[in-house]
Computed example of a mutant assay.
Amino acid sequence: MTYRRSAGSPRGEARRRELLDLVTEDLAVNGLVDFSLRRAARAAGTTHKVLLYHFDSAEDLLERAVAQLRELRISRSLGAAADEPTLAGRVRALWPVLTSGESWVLDQAIGLAIYDADRHGGLARGGTQQYLPALVSLCPPGWEQERKADVAAMILATLRGFLIDLRTSGGDPVGVEAGFVALGRALDREEAAG
């Protein structure tokens, strides 16, 4: 068990949120390359010791900042998908949000998790835990929960594949567009099955 003196104190929690916001803003601009506690401290206008007072470690701070960036991305994505009448349309509406803004930073987080799963695996697991409920919420309300979870997991895996293809192809969207056509057909069939 770790001990964080700010835990439980309203003043301490407010300061912790403020520090996390400042570090998250830095990540959104500068990415994860060369992330360190000292860099985070500079971005937050404090010292690395103060950050360790409020967070368990540099990895804890990094995971929390990446999670905060993801929450912003998820919120914008769901907003973009809200007016689409079909599941395929809702998933398609997510894509521009998933590939804009801070998406390159979140792609770096997945890369770190792949490169060093022991140290940074939480970045990928955290993403899955954040994205799946959002994708489940896009499924038709009449579906059984297990079916929603299965379809959401398939959508997440497919979109991650599309992101990797887009990033490794130098931004050429041809493969992704073909993939979206096939994904749309599969989701339309799934939705038609009731």
Rank of each mutant, 00 (worst) to 15 (best):
T2L: 05
R4G: 02
R4W: 00
R5K: 12
G8A: 02
R16F: 01
R17W: 01
E18R: 14
D21T: 11
T24S: 06
D26G: 08
L27Q: 04
V29K: 10
N30A: 02
N30W: 13
R38V: 13
R38C: 02
R39N: 10
A40K: 11
A41C: 13
A44T: 06
G45R: 00
T47H: 13
H48D: 11
H48W: 12
L51Q: 05
L51W: 03
F55T: 04
D56E: 15
S57F: 01
A58R: 05
L61W: 08
E63M: 04
E63Y: 05
R64M: 08
R64N: 03
V66T: 07
A67I: 00
A67N: 14
L72W: 08
R73V: 12
R73Q: 10
S75Q: 12
R76G: 01
R76K: 13
D83G: 15
D83K: 13
E84H: 03
P85C: 10
A88I: 07
R90Q: 08
R90A: 15
V91M: 04
R92L: 06
L94M: 12
L94W: 09
W95Q: 00
P96Y: 03
P96N: 03
L98W: 02
T99S: 06
S100K: 11
G101K: 03
D107R: 09
Q108S: 08
A109S: 04
L112Q: 08
A113N: 07
I114T: 13
D116F: 01
D116V: 02
D118G: 14
H120Y: 15
G122T: 03
R125C: 14
R125L: 15
G126P: 00
G126K: 01
G127F: 15
Q129A: 15
L132C: 05
L132F: 13
P133M: 05
A134R: 12
L135Y: 08
S137C: 11
S137L: 06
C139T: 00
P140C: 01
P141F: 07
G142K: 07
G142N: 01
E144M: 08
K148L: 07
A149Y: 06
A149D: 15
A153P: 05
M154D: 07
M154E: 05
L156Y: 15
A157W: 11
A157E: 11
T158L: 10
L159T: 00
L159V: 13
I164A: 11
D165M: 13
R167H: 15
T168R: 11
S169I: 04
S169N: 02
G170H: 02
D172W: 09
V176L: 03
A178H: 08
F180H: 02
V181N: 00
L183H: 02
G184H: 10
A186L: 14
L187K: 02
L187A: 00
R189D: 12
R189W: 08
E190V: 14
E190G: 06
G194N: 04
